[in-house]
């Protein structure tokens, strides 16, 4: 029986992720846990997250889970969701408690930027159809352009819509790390992939059929 851990370090609601995994993998053992040994022994690891990244990375440091998470990201099928994607990059310009940009895990080259700081063009975040600024957070169902084939995309049409809610977005430096992009005034990396890691900005657990399919693909992903 495959075991899946949803990593918990006290940052918000993880029940939805766990429920969705249970729904697509009734035979798997799905647990929400902040226990280092449980994370070390799990077959598959999900790193979810919402809220502000400063508090998120601090909680990750403070709970001693960081080594276990890094080890999982190095060795087993690993799915990052929302902040769980952003935190894999080098830094975020979402201000930490000291007002500086936040240094993150650095497994992927690139930065996390506020939508309004991505482009130097002041009109980038103006909707050409309405002349009005794109609302922030980027909230709702947007399309993901699959930039390459990947087992996690199986059964999901290119340009399918997923549910997003975020104000900061990933700007990857390396094309080979990108599995999907989305456009909201500016384009950003909505799906990241390398080896055993897949990470998405959107919420598969809230993205109905296509989101559940992605989670099912994760459960069956043979790295």
């Amino acid at each position: 029986m495959t075991s899946i851990i949803v990593v918990d370090f006290g940052m918000g609601n993880l029940r939805s992720v766990a429920k969705a995994l249970e729904h697509v993998a009734p035979k798997a053992k799905v647990s929400i846990s902040g226990d280092v040994s449980a994370i070390r022994s799990a077959d598959r690891v999900v790193l979810p997250g919402q809220g502000a990244i400063g508090g998120y990375i601090k909680a990750l440091h403070d709970t001693d889970l960081e080594p276990a998470v890094l080890e999982a990201a190095d060795t087993r099928p690993f799915l990052g969701i929302c902040l769980g994607q952003q935190v894999l990059y080098e830094s975020s310009d979402e201000h930490g408690e000291d007002g500086e940009s936040v240094k993150t895990l650095g497994l992927f080259k690139g930065q996390v930027k506020h939508f309004t700081h991505v482009s130097a063009d002041p009109n980038a975040m103006i909707d050409p159809n309405t002349g009005h600024q794109y609302t922030i957070p980027h909230m709702g169902w947007n399309q993901v352009k699959q930039t390459r084939d990947h087992p996690m995309w199986h059964g999901i049409d290119d340009l399918s819509r997923f549910y997003f809610v975020h104000s900061y977005c990933v700007q990857s430096e390396l094309d080979e790390d990108v599995a999907g992009i989305t456009s909201y005034g500016v384009e950003f990396t909505s799906a990241t992939a390398r080896d055993n890691i897949f990470a998405v900005q959107f919420h598969p657990e809230k993205s109905q059929h296509d989101g559940l399919r992605l989670l099912e693909n994760f459960v069956n992903w043979d790295v």
Binding site: G140, W141, N142, Q143, T147, L159, I181, V186
Partner: peptide, 18 residues
Amino acid sequence: VRESQTPVRKGNFMGLAK
């Protein structure tokens, strides 16, 4: 980023849904 990530064709994205 935008220029390098082929094969993106302009006009593919329909934008955020209402």
